[in-house]
Design a binder for these strands. Structure first.
Lengths: 417, 417
DNA sequence: GCCATTTGCTTAATCGTTAAACCATTTTGC
DNA sequence: GCAAAATGGTTTAACGATTAAGCAAATGGC
């Protein structure tokens, strides 16, 4: 029982005709109200909708039965329509409505006419199920947590896009967060998302986050590692074959006649970076090329801009000058190429370039850059596919997916003259 | 009452010492179990945690009281610890635990020692509150829905990043989705997020999405429009002053001595695009420069690549040849510059360039590009700030924020020789 | 005509958390 | 010395949906 005090209340109702506006509040549900229709004129012409004002006038304190109360409260508190409201209007129990709306009507022996009636009411009232309640009850939120290094990095933005699409395809929603390559931030983020009861994670790991992985395993939380993984931990992962990609880049430069090949990478213990370095070293070895210590430069992530510049300086010292540079990531390449521009070095006449990273931007460079194209489409898709499989079948075996990158050969690594 | 059938069960427990492992399951709660500790050896060395196996042996069908059941079920079903579990262990009611953990202990007259005890237990059991239940009960999900055109576009990726940070600062989580500039997709997305009970939206509107805005208003759903808005609809929005930005770009080229200035924009009825065109036209007028129809080219979004090329071709026709081009968006610029590269046109000797868009990439171009820098930081922050204000105070007045862009003048628009 | 089955629905428990209302004690004020 | 207030809790209902279990009434079989 709720008390409705004397007075006049006005409710604004969008409808197509005055009659429709009145019909929305069934008259008989307000036995003690005087309902006055009052047309307000055209407020908006969108799709032919107009607004009408309904006056509710009552003189006494009303003690209304639950049925009326529900509807009045809905209008006044702007609450959303629930299963119960539909049930009240249809004169059935909430359970029945649930059955019908979930397509379990036949299975639970609901009369066809009743089912149709319920569906119609649900549509009229524009019922939107409360996903929170659904999730709480079922223990499944149909949400995936995506933890990436930085969404403003084009590589991850693209991955995020693909993950989002693929997830929606399975009926999942994505919550993302950026870790900034920081293990602590990453863990905080994961905890927040665990509290939101995401069903599983897709994680781009950061340096020193091995224990996070153990922690998730201990708690039986489902996840798939993306782009980076830990060879010593048995987990699901989807990654590029970085060794091969890097090897191919080196071999390509060797084949094109370059002899002094340098690599600029990040200083990191992470496997994907070590693999890129290992691939480069092996490519030189296989092709019987010399290697000088100054040709392998590892720069700090936090100070990349200046360190890349000094790295390039060192590579260009007389005596051990490189004639080709491989950049191990996109951001290194952007910083490096800017500097090379400023130095007035001609690519590829003075210096050949191969870079990891993304296509789009490298087209803007005066000389189109040869780059390692990762299969982002399949990286993202595979990660979601595996995660969904694991969520649907907890006994699913471990998937370790290594995708080959493709070397896109262009002007910046043309045959050396 | 739950039946536990005869047999042996093994539970894997992470702990630091065998004693600790046993302590986790309080012995006295299993009066009919034989509990055997069995050390499994080092499984992982992470932070000194080891795994221990606990054997539960029972001979009869057990009808255990609720307290034991709780714990057994937790282990077997891998369920998370809830308020109730803490309450059981502490010997108090769930409500009390809730009060304590929400810092309302003092307000609700909970003894200090009891509060500390509860906090300790919560920590020991690694209690993580269930956000779904919280939201369901409180009606607030502390989640913001971010609807953008395409997260793989660097502008929006950056915005997403800023929105995420600012939202976390207020304790909100972000769910995002890409609309692909498609009003139908955008509406679908919004509906999905409404069902997830996001507290409010930050929306980058698409063409023809005016009615969506009305729809949200009718349903009393909170939102802030970002980057694009509808001048005829009274809503909160945060946007760049596109007219001024475009005017400044045109005026700058005029000042530098260019006389035949063209603009390549998207064919769109959206206000932000119309404003960019209007700014360009007015800049020409103010500077008493000629305008030819072929100098204003509007290309289709879905076919941008080829249409940009024909647009440039038309601008370069003999007789009405432009000496400067303004690109109205980043993606138009990328496509246009690639084509200009291919044509062998020298920037700025043959053609000056000014573009809307983002800094990073334009540095790679042989000649640094003059560009309109939008204040992304404040765009994103302001959107979140306004939304949070509205969520905390529904009577908050409408905020209409127009931020000025900054023209970064570089080599591509140097003084005409 | 009578029991068994089917039909068509309702009831009640549950998920985890919150918040108002309630209830004994004990302490305080004058 | 006695009412009022403070203390330290508990109980209960609610949020919105799902689902097993239960229960009348109608129908079917022989």
């Amino acid at each position: 029982m709720i008390n409705v005090f004397p007075g006049t209340s006005t409710i604004k109702i969008p409808a197509k005709t005055p009659a429709e506006a009145l019909a929305i509040i069934p008259n008989h549900t307000f036995p003690l109200f005087t309902v006055t229709l009052y047309y307000s004129g055209l407020v908006t012409s969108v799709k032919g909708w107009r607004f009408y004002y309904i006056h509710l006038v009552n003189r006494n304190i009303l003690h209304l039965p639950a049925f009326s109360i529900q509807f009045i409260r809905k209008w006044f508190t702007k609450k959303k329509i629930s299963l119960k409201d539909i049930a009240l209007k249809a004169g059935v129990s909430a359970a029945l409505v649930s059955y019908v709306l979930n397509g379990k009507g036949r299975k639970n022996r609901v009369r066809k006419e009743k089912a149709e009636e319920i569906l119609k009411i649900a549509k009229d009232l524009n019922y939107q199920p409360n996903h929170l309640a659904k999730s709480l009850r079922s223990g499944k939120s149909f949400t995936i947590g995506l933890v990436i290094a930085d969404i403003s990095n084009p590589f991850f933005a693209n991955i995020a896009r693909i993950v989002e699409n693929q997830a929606r395809h399975y009926g999942y929603t994505v919550i993302y967060g950026s870790s900034d390559e920081d293990a602590v931030k990453s863990m905080d983020l994961i905890n927040v998302l665990i509290n939101r009861r995401v069903d599983g994670f897709i994680i781009v790991s950061t340096e020193n986050s091995g224990e996070q992985v153990y922690h998730l395993m201990e708690q039986h939380i489902l996840f798939v590692l993306l782009d980076r993984y830990f060879p010593e931990i048995k987990t699901d992962f989807v990654s590029t074959n970085n060794y091969k990609a890097s090897f191919d880049a080196g071999a390509h430069l060797a084949e094109r006649g370059y002899k002094n090949i340098g690599l600029i990478a990040y200083k990191s213990k992470m496997f994907h970076m070590r693999e890129r370095i290992r691939g480069y070293r092996d490519a030189l070895k296989k092709n019987k090329l010399a290697f000088k210590k100054t040709w392998l430069q590892e720069v700090q992530f936090n100070n990349a801009k200046t360190e890349v510049e000094t790295a390039i300086d060192k590579m260009l010292l007389p005596g051990y000058t490189v004639d080709a540079i491989i950049f191990a990531t996109y951001s290194l390449a952007v910083n490096g190429l800017k500097y090379i521009n400023r130095l007035g070095i001609k690519v590829p006449a003075d210096l050949a370039i191969v870079s990891f990273g993304q296509a789009d931007v490298f087209d803007l460079y005066a000389c189109p850059i040869t780059y390692v194209m990762q299969d982002m489409e399949n990286l993202g898709k595979a990660a979601v596919d595996i995660l969904v499989k694991k969520m649907e079948n907890p006994k699913e075996k471990i998937h370790e997916v290594l995708l080959d990158a493709k070397l896109i050969k262009r002007e910046s690594s043309r045959i050396k003259k």
